[in-house]
Amino acid sequence: MLNDLFPNVDWEMMWEATRETIYMTAVSTLLTFILGLVLGIVLFLTSPTQLWANKIVNVLTGSFVNIFRSIPFIILVILLIPFTKFLLGTIRGANAALPALIIGAAPFYARMVLIALREIDKGVIEAARSMGAKTWTIIWKVLIPESLPALISGITVTAVALVGYTAMAGVIGAGGLGNLAFMDGFQRSRNDVTLVATILVLIIVFIIQFIGDFITSKTDKR
């Protein structure tokens, strides 16, 4: 029956492309979370009056974040071709998309981390200091837990954006549903292939959003 509705869809290939999209999104989300969190915490702690107040580091990190946040993703992919080639030896396939995905998304997420950390009550950090906590303890036991709902809703938004980025990366050969929709659907005028790929992307986005919202509300005890 499905084959009557979508005569041109090769389900084997569609499933393969879906797995590639999920793989690219999952790995890049994980690494974006780690890199963005580190950048966001550095930005926060080096800002004036904070524990590591340091103008130089703050300005440097801030500039890095702002520049990479502003470069359109498709241009970033092209700019990163030599870097990717050096790193992985190829610019084709799901793994080749990862550097661009992470470098594109991590600054975006770092900004959200910074905003989340600024929302933490200053008094709570001060209380931890008054108990003799090390900065490391403050990061692990105060900053991250106290901003967790915002960190999770931020990574949810970022993951959804990353699904979109994987589709764009797909157009230049990284595989996944975007690649399939473009190569097999658009260029060969097989609209049913494009339609199915689109529905699958939407399902992935909805699942991410659902999981993100669920964890956000579970962790919020305010």
């Binding site: 009550d121 967790l148 005890k221």
Partner: peptide, 8 residues
Amino acid sequence: HFNLLWSR
């Protein structure tokens, strides 16, 4: 303002 950790 007590300064408790709301997450705990």
